[in-house]
Design a protein around this nucleic acid. Sequence first.
DNA 1: GTAGCACCGTAGGTATTAGG
DNA 2: CCTAATACCTACGGTGCTAC
Length: 309
Amino acid sequence: MKGCDYLILKPRSESSELLILRALSPRKNFTEKERQYYLGLEKGYEGELKFDKLMETHLNEIPFLNDLLLEQNNSLFQIDSLGCSKDGLYLFDIKNFEGDFIVDGETWKTTNGTELKNPIHQSTRCETLFRKYLLERKFNLPIKSYLIFINPHFTLYNAPINPSIILPTQLDKFIEKLQMDISNPGTKYTKLVERILSDHRSGYPNPNLPKYEYGELKKGVFCSECRSNMLSDLDRTGKVFCGGCRNVESLESAVLRSIWDFQLLFPEKKVTTVEIFKWCNGIVGYRTILRILIKNFKREGNGKATFYL
DNA sequence: GTAGCACCGTAGGTATTAGG
DNA sequence: CCTAATACCTACGGTGCTAC
């Protein structure tokens, strides 16, 4: 089934937090804690994309709303994926945990003893808040909620017997069952979807971002794949090469990514030719930067006061 | 296979222009 | 008036096509 037949009413995209951390990761020396946090976000997002892919392949006749951030009684809650079937709503919480984990009563920990937030509690909290959210807005609908461990290399010792938890080994069966149960709701949820989309918060308050300053950040153009330094190619081919993974990328797209990172990290700074030239650490010629800016941005001002939007 | 060629893209010299 | 921005121009590498 083609992607365009898949009904995504609200697409998924990286949170601004993840985008900022991703832009910072090759440029700033993270503390171990920051690095772990960042990698956790990447991993989580990767898991969500994997889930989307599964749904696109196997459950493409019902609409989905992804990545919702809603509020109920001053409590924010996040929904990874919401499927709208004729028989009710399906709430999916997706975890991309990898490795061995142990359940000890209410506590979850890794085999080396590190405790983590109990994902069942998180999932239940989300479900509870979403039920209240619906009831308060007079939508009386059945909800089925699932906590899905999507990573095939996930093992849970002492796993609780709970039909809402889907372990990787159960995933195929689970999807088969969903295929039997769900069906296209037609226009049943038009009002609800409209309401949810208007309530959705795009901005997420972010206390976890590390502080950073222009001066402390490494300058350069970084590989989209492995984040290591890109090397300019001296043969004037319009390509740049990754020093780490040998990835080849067009000079223009690599520079555009750097400009985008610059705007993301320093929204208050103006994009000028020199500024971007310095930001890219001279990997790309000054005039090439200028040409890329002219081609892809709108120029404001003249002469020395020129900047790009 | 390869020489010849058009086309695309970057680098860098130089002249012109505008802002501070 | 000085400096940075930038337009215009040339040089040249890579690519892909064609004719042989």
